[in-house]
């Protein structure tokens, strides 16, 4: 199994390098560069040219790329011309926010998906199952941003139960209990809104896995052993059906990234997704490329995580 994981890591590394090259090239193709937004148009073009030379902007692309990578590895992702601060600093707090939002979304997703999937799969074609599958169809059909807007309107404005923006109420000291509760309260509604949608694919996946496993021959073997239905389900059907779900976990991360862009914008939540959209609109390219890089790395690591989980739980993939 270790061999498999190491080999898998060997694939991951070039993936990340390739991703960074693509992002770098795309950033280069964007109009303007690091200086364009920073300087007063009245400065003498010769001085600008001198400055460019000094900053290495006239070097061939691979030298610039090497410089960029060197910086990125050391935590220097350049300057945001819009916020006039280092990108790293800008991203740090937002990354933490997005991390908690994603984690809570994942928890909600599984807390909802696993029981719903199990109920739906075990008692398939009953009215309960129809209700659950009905919900999944609506979830598939309804775009995330519409659901989120509805949530904001109903629970935020109409009932006023949850805040509709920000990540924490102003004026609280970090570290206090009130601060923590306020953070949590700001997270609940966006995380739930997102989970309501992301959960449907997991529910459907789990349901079809269970229905599929129910018809396998080894289930008959288990019954022929004299196993009562509860054991047949717990030991054979659920155990085998949850496996692919576990492996799906890593891929959920990519889904969360896409979702966070909408959710954070709608809830005015200061996270990576919102930062991404804002920077695109403001043409703050050094921020955009850094955010895309981080998203990309997260997705690649998610896929890696999936494969590792699968290799641990599924003996057929385990390599001795």
């Amino acid at each position: 199994m270790w061999k498999f994981i190491v080999r898998r890591l060997f694939v991951t590394f070039p993936q990340i390098v390739l991703l960074s090259i693509i992002i770098f090239i795309l950033a280069q193709m964007m109009p303007g560069d690091a200086l364009t937004g920073l300087i007063d148009p009245n400065i003498d073009p010769a001085a600008i040219e001198q400055q460019r030379e000094r900053l290495g902007l006239n070097n061939p692309w691979y030298v610039q790329y090497a410089d960029w990578v060197k910086g990125a590895v050391q935590g220097d992702l350049g300057q945001s011309f819009r916020y006039k601060m280092p990108v790293t600093e800008l991203i740090e707090q937002r990354m933490i926010n997005t991390f908690w939002l994603s984690l809570l979304t994942l928890i909600f997703t599984y807390v909802m998906a696993i029981p719903l999937g199990i109920i739906s799969g075990r008692w398939n074609d009953t009215w309960l199952d129809r209700a659950i599958t009905g919900y999944t169809y609506i979830g598939f059909a309804a775009p995330l941003f519409i659901t989120a807007l509805l949530m904001v309107w109903i629970f935020g404005f109409h009932f006023g139960w949850f805040p509709t923006g920000g990540s924490v109420a102003p004026g609280l000291t970090p570290g206090t209990f009130e601060y923590f509760m306020s953070k949590l309260q700001h997270l609940l509604l966006p995380a739930f809104s997102m989970a309501v949608i992301t959960t449907v694919s997991t529910v459907q996946y789990l349901r079809s896995e269970i229905i599929d496993t129910k018809q396998k021959d080894f289930i008959i073997t288990a019954r022929a052993k004299g196993a009562p239905e509860s054991r047949v389900y717990n030991r054979h059907i659920f155990r085998n059906s949850l496996l692919p779900i576990a492996a799906f976990f890593g891929y959920e991360i990519s889904g969360l990234i896409g979702g966070s862009v909408f959710i954070e914008t709608i809830f005015a939540f200061p996270g990576m997704g919102k930062l991404f959209l804002d920077s695109v609109l403001l043409r703050d390219f050094s921020v955009v490329s850094s955010v895309v890089l981080i998203f990309g790395i997260a997705a690649i690591l998610g896929a890696l995580l999936s494969d590792i989980i699968l290799s641990i739980v599924d003996p057929r993939i385990r390599i001795k």
Binding site: K216, D217, F218, I220, T221, A222, R223, A224, K225, G226, A227, H236, R239, N240, L243, V313, D314, P315, R316
Partner: peptide, 20 residues
């Protein structure tokens, strides 16, 4: 009774066992 007094040998050994 199943698995104790009466038992069954199945046709396809590839699918009759739980793969996990």
């Amino acid at each position: 009774l199943r698995g104790d007094d009466m038992a069954m040998i199945f046709q396809d050994p590839l699918t009759a066992l739980n793969p996990l």
